[in-house]
Design a binder for these strands. Structure first.
Length: 761
DNA sequence: TTAGGGTTAG
């Protein structure tokens, strides 16, 4: 072929490259045509150049086989041909083939140049090939390329990222012929990654003074990573404005992120709004900022806005917005984001999966949590801890599930349990039945010598308290080296939970003597202890702490004061404390309604319920229990029936045994025994049947009493009271035979009448 | 040929 036609082929190949993005499918065909002509052509130096263009072209079109064919068909190959194919294989994920080809090249007549070595070192960095990187560095020295600035930048990056070896990185850096902005940026970025702020600032100054180089967007990004104070972020922001990089998508996103982390959400938002180009990083940064700064609703709104703009969510933004849904307690949005997660195929992602798990865990959807956990591919310790915390909240067999999963973690995963794992594991022990397991887990904690750690020790205190072992709880408290306010409130709470109110108050005094202040956690516990002891003077002292500590805005603590006064019998003081609550919630209302009910003032209780409804506060099961108990004490049958219906029908609340018992009590006292029987016929509990049974005794309705007693005996055969009650009824009616039979039956099932006792004896 | 940013629990 003539020289002219080769030139034509070259111009065709260049045209091909230029127009490829316009008509990709057509250009592959054109490429094949040029390729065919080229094979038939004579050899000219230009030919290698055209072959190289075609090789790169096929590679860009993801047709590696054709790229390889071009390479194999080349009569002569140069360094560009070799380097192109080596990089093509690596970029398409065929790292071994790429390295094999590099080795083959070393044995060929064509020698690698600085481009080839730069690429290979870069590959060693991204794929973390630590030993191969050093071997290639030796070759670089052998070939005399070590002073090259391009290759040097790649080597500095390699030593910092793969080996974390600053000395070697500096050695390469100092030996370079000249340093450009990239070389400086590589070094600064590597040091910023290990948070060597002093060194980063020194280099930043030196770069500007010694080499007279202006910082660019990469430099500012590294500097931003080192910021820990708002003033530093402001300074970088100033530099970005000075050099016109404020609206650069990467620098801008970095600023948005850092302002969010420093709590200056508004400034971050201004930067975000000023950015002309926003990518998924920018959206992710601003959304995470809203979550971090306590505005989860706005984070969710922004996420929806982002989706509407056609930006495809990725795993980062999904996990941020899921955290927002969790914090806003918004299960519905969580489900919507779950749909986006499935749509964008992030089900196997550990971060997204864990964030979603906590949403379903809060909603008590344990089955969904389990499914999500199983779908995560590379589970990290956070994912494991998340499901363990979830199992710890199970109502039944929590220890069984938790221990099985912990065993699975230890036996099947390379992930190592951490402190949070042990905390989650021990939190699964919730009752005296779990004490044996709890002791074993505590043994594991002792073996690892982490019992003295505050977070673990606090969890151990709570475990022993839940399992009823207060002495061990105190020992665990004693073992903690640095007791925090949670340690103190846990041990105070433990004593209160196990009926040691006086000791709880004494420990509180000890805490105050140690110079630890009462907090919104420990104070309500002490107030509750005063209430239990009916010690109003003590309660008043704690009330004064409430004022002194400025906790008046805390509804939780405020409600405990309302409860304390009511339980101590001073309803007026209770009412006053209730009126002083700044933002009463359902708990506060329940406390006050219970206070009135306990006092026998059903009218006031009902009136307060009306106020609560007017304020738009939704009542719960506890509210209705208080109302029913108030009405039942006063014999208000119709009111009781009305509240029971409102609860079930208007608020869709499933009645608990206590609700039934109250209703049966009031009906029973009014002699409406059959009516009570009808209500509990299908779903009554032992408590309701026992209540009805005693009503039957009062009205001497032996027929119905027999039915009730049979039910109680079925539900709890060891309960003595049903046998005794019925037997007394039989005796009263002169049915001595039946009475005696029943007493014998009681002896047979092993039931024993509890002996009475009196505080006065 | 070489350099950069955002995410999960307690």
């Amino acid at each position: 072929m003539h020289r002219r036609s080769t030139r034509k082929l070259l111009s065709d190949a260049i045209q091909l490259l230029l127009h490829h993005h316009l008509k990709p499918r057509k250009s592959i065909e054109e490429c094949k045509q040029i390729h065919a002509k080229l094979i038939r052509s004579n050899q000219t130096p230009l030919q290698i150049h055209i072959f190289n263009i075609l090789l790169n072209f096929y590679s860009q079109c993801n047709d590696l086989c054709s790229a390889r064919r071009v390479f194999d068909q080349m009569p002569h190959k140069n360094v560009v041909s070799w380097t192109s194919l080596i990089s093509s294989y690596a970029l398409h994920g065929f790292l071994r083939t790429s390295v094999a080809l590099f080795t083959e090249m070393l044995e060929s007549t064509v020698k690698p140049n600085t481009h080839t070595f730069s690429f290979m070192i870069h590959e060693c960095t991204t794929s973390c090939l630590s030993v191969l990187g050093i071997q290639i560095h030796c070759l670089v020295i052998k070939f005399g390329f070590e002073k090259d600035e391009f290759l040097g930048s790649a080597l500095v990056d390699f030593y910092l990222k793969v080996w974390n070896n600053m000395d070697e990185a500096f050695r390469v850096f100092d030996g370079l012929w000249r340093r450009d902005r990239v070389t400086w940026n590589v070094l600064i970025s590597g040091l910023a990654d290990v948070s060597d702020v002093g060194e980063v600032l020194r280099l930043f100054r030196e770069m500007r003074v010694a080499d007279e180089l202006r910082p660019n967007d990469y430099t500012l990004t590294s500097l931003l990573k080192c910021c820990s104070l708002i003033i530093e972020v402001d300074q970088i922001h100033g530099l970005a404005m000075k050099y016109g990089m404020e609206s650069d998508v990467v620098v801008g996103s970095g600023l948005v992120d850092m302002y969010g982390k420093c709590g200056k959400l508004d400034t971050g938002r201004k930067v975000f709004d000023s950015m002309e180009v926003k990518d998924i990083f920018s959206w992710s940064s601003i959304i995470a900022s809203y979550v971090r700064n306590g505005s989860p609703e706005q984070a969710v709104t922004l996420f929806l806005h982002m989706c509407r703009q056609g930006v495809k969510p990725d795993q980062h933004v999904l996990s941020s917005v899921l955290r927002a849904c969790a914090e806003a307690g918004n299960l519905e949005s969580g489900i919507q984001v779950h749909a986006q997660m499935i749509k964008n195929a992030y089900q196997a992602d550990c971060f997204v999966g864990s964030a979603l798990m906590s949403i379903y865990a809060n909603a008590k959807e344990l089955g969904s949590v389990e499914k999500l956990f199983r779908r995560i591919e590379n589970k990290d310790i956070v994912a494991w801890n998340c499901i363990l915390m979830c199992y710890a909240q199970k109502e039944e067999l929590a220890t069984f599930y938790s221990i099985s999963l912990f065993r699975e973690l230890c036996q099947t995963s390379t992930v190592r349990p951490d402190m949070a794992t042990l905390v989650a594991l021990i939190a699964s022990c919730q009752s005296v039945l779990d004490l044996a397991v709890g002791i074993q887990i505590h043994g594991l904690i002792m073996k690892r010598r982490v019992g003295c750690e505050t977070s673990i020790g606090n969890a151990v205190i709570i475990m022993y308290s839940n399992c009823g072992s207060i002495i061990d709880a105190y020992k665990a408290f004693d073992d903690i080296v640095n007791k925090d306010e949670i340690s103190w409130s846990s041990i105070i709470g433990s004593h209160l939970q196990n009926g040691f109110e006086l000791e709880a108050v004494n420990i509180c005094k000890e805490m105050l003597a140690e110079g630890i202040y009462l907090t919104s956690f420990s104070l309500p516990l002490c107030i509750a202890a005063s209430a239990k002891l009916a010690a109003i003077d003590l309660g008043k002292q704690f009330h004064s702490f409430f004022v002194k500590l400025g906790l008046e805005g805390d509804t939780f603590v405020g409600s405990s004061i309302v409860d304390m006064y009511a339980k101590c019998g001073n309803v007026e003081a209770s009412q006053k404390a209730f009126k002083e609550l700044q933002e009463p919630n359902v708990v506060s209302f329940n406390t006050m309604i219970s206070g009135f009910a306990r006092q026998g003032n059903a009218a006031k209780a009902i009136e307060l319920y009306g106020e609560m409804e007017k304020m738009g506060i939704v009542p719960n099961g506890v509210t209705f229990l208080a109302l029913l108990s108030g009405c039942s004490h006063m014999g208000l049958v119709e009111n009781s029936l009305a509240f029971f219906n409102i609860m079930c029908q208007k608020y869709n609340i499933e009645p608990e045994p206590e609700h039934f018992a109250c209703l049966v009590d009031v009906l029973g006292r009014a002699g409406r025994l059959e009516e009570a029987y009808c209500i509990i016929e299908n779903d009554g509990s032992v408590l309701a049947w026992k209540t009805l049974l005693s009503a039957c005794r009062n009205y001497e309705n032996t027929k119905l009493a027999e039915k009730c007693a049979t039910k109680v005996m079925q539900l709890d055969p060891t309960d003595h009271s049903s046998y005794v009650l019925l037997s007394n009824l039989y005796s009263r009616e002169g049915k001595w035979k039946e009475a005696s039979k029943l007493r014998q039956k009681l002896v047979n099932v092993g039931g024993k009448k509890n002996l009475g006792s009196s505080w006065l004896m």
